[in-house]
Write a protein that binds this DNA or RNA. Sequence first.
DNA 1: CCGAGTTGTGACATCGTTGTCCAGGACCAC
DNA 2: GTGGTCCTGGACAACGATGTCACAACTCGG
Lengths: 336, 336
Amino acid sequence: MAERATMRDVAALAGVSLKTVSRVVNNEGSVSPDLEARVTRAAEQLRYRHNIAASNLRSGQRSRAVALLVQDLSNEYSAILLRAVSDVARDRGIVVLSASLDEEEGRERELVANFIGRRIDGMIMMPATTDQSYLQPDVAAGFAVVMIDREPRGLSADSVVVDNVEGAERATAHLIRHGHRRIALVSDDPRVVTAQDRRQGYERALSASGIALERQLVRSARTVGGSMDQVRELLSLDDPPTAIFAARNTSTAGAAISLKRMGKSHLVALVGFDELQLAELADPGITTLAQDPAHVGSVAVGLLLDRLDGQSEPPRVLTLPTALTARGSGEIRPPD
Amino acid sequence: MAERATMRDVAALAGVSLKTVSRVVNNEGSVSPDLEARVTRAAEQLRYRHNIAASNLRSGQRSRAVALLVQDLSNEYSAILLRAVSDVARDRGIVVLSASLDEEEGRERELVANFIGRRIDGMIMMPATTDQSYLQPDVAAGFAVVMIDREPRGLSADSVVVDNVEGAERATAHLIRHGHRRIALVSDDPRVVTAQDRRQGYERALSASGIALERQLVRSARTVGGSMDQVRELLSLDDPPTAIFAARNTSTAGAAISLKRMGKSHLVALVGFDELQLAELADPGITTLAQDPAHVGSVAVGLLLDRLDGQSEPPRVLTLPTALTARGSGEIRPPD
DNA sequence: CCGAGTTGTGACATCGTTGTCCAGGACCAC
DNA sequence: GTGGTCCTGGACAACGATGTCACAACTCGG
């Protein structure tokens, strides 16, 4: 296998010194046109590829790489987020690494260690750990961190969140306003902070209307399939709910599919937290209370780049709004 | 801002030589337990983070980083692909960079140059260029490339594809079998190779049944919104199509939304190429002819890792199957 | 108690690049 | 012709790490 050409090889072929090649490659300017042409030709001839890692090592520059750590890259929320982050990064010549944490603490620590070992400049993370104080020394050493979806714990870092409690309360109140009093909650794993917040919002809305919390109407599941099962069980209760608040996009998808398979899409109301790309296509359309993941992404990467540009104010928490879009499923009224 | 500790600092604190620290960090074994403990303690105390880039530079090891270049990371197809690639990579301690090309040749070349400059080990790519011969010298230097969705041109590299012509022909034939003769095609930008292939399959199916190609029924659009517009136009023709073959997931989504808004979901048949996560939720469910992106991803990364493990057979082309899933929209019969 | 073999440790060069600094030629004014 | 400035080019060390090799300090058989 052919070895890669280095600056030394280029210099030898062009008959100049190593440093002159470096000057040409970095466009430092102070090289005569004649020599510059010779160097450029030699580089092309040898298919020279500048080694960015070596360059960064020597020059002490930033690596121009950042990471995005989310729960699940295949979730459409994360996919849109990644796209938004990548677009902003690319405009600045920054590359993006990404990974899925699946809410596993060990995986977060392992991936973070790997990324920091590669000396990336910063990271946008939807944390899986409950405490991120282990990152404090790295942040002190200039590593930029922005949390999304959840505020940092034990770490001073910027974050971009939505008001999950308020949003869930609003979504649940929407169902109550349409006459429901038996409202089920289908949410994510209760260990997840956002799931706890959304449950709290759900409970607040109920108690604000004097509705007692019924334990059997509160369900959780981590996957679409799991949510389908929970909804099937809910609807076969003796006294089934007349409405469902699905606190996450996978829960909403599962609930909607279950309702459709049971032929109850038009009978049981459904409001989902988070957007679903094809929410409009379902029949009835699925009412959602959504945040805009592209906005979250661009705001988060903006905060990150600010820090890399030397911003040193105290950490900021940006709370983005959520919007309720009525499409039909959330406006179904309870039977008589 | 605190500078990061280096091995030199750790060595000084532990009172040993640099090389001994290196031995401990790399677990080379031949260090006495006593010294090893001192080194470990010093490393923790200084929050030492091993510099992987410097280590790779010196040792000449691979970087254990690969890239995934797709058209659009926010497309659910790409998101699932990325997730599958990441999962396999993570099991081997390999990190994944990703980027969207948006079918722009310049962006492909720019991103590839950046990634190769970072000395990543290999790349899985849905190419935007029509000719990838510019990569040949890098492949010769040990850079592994696997193409997905499209075969490489001007480059010997492995690829993972589906038979687009055959798939499109099968999808179109499905509509013909249900009695349609005026079948519209809504596809991606005609410069995209897969769009050309799928159009060819569409035409083959028509001519196999003696149906003349009608130019005005052949449309293309790059986005969901564009596809919606095309479908709206198609249905307001004097002699509108009774069925639509949407040759890509964004086209399918656009077509389905347009049909729903026009109240024609149950009147005009629709078959889409590629899966849509909520295809089942639409009313009627959307009939699709799909490939499995997770499978494409794991097969592609498998080929890539094989090459990195030294596999040197001639390039392979793996053709994966597509499956037609009837959900209702593709089985609508034409009026009268 | 010696010589051979085994272990553990460190000095040094090196990976591919860039920052620093100096040499020397061209040019100008005097 | 001299002295100063400007510009270009190159020697050298360094970034943070590891491979090579040499050399102490052991062990152990005889």
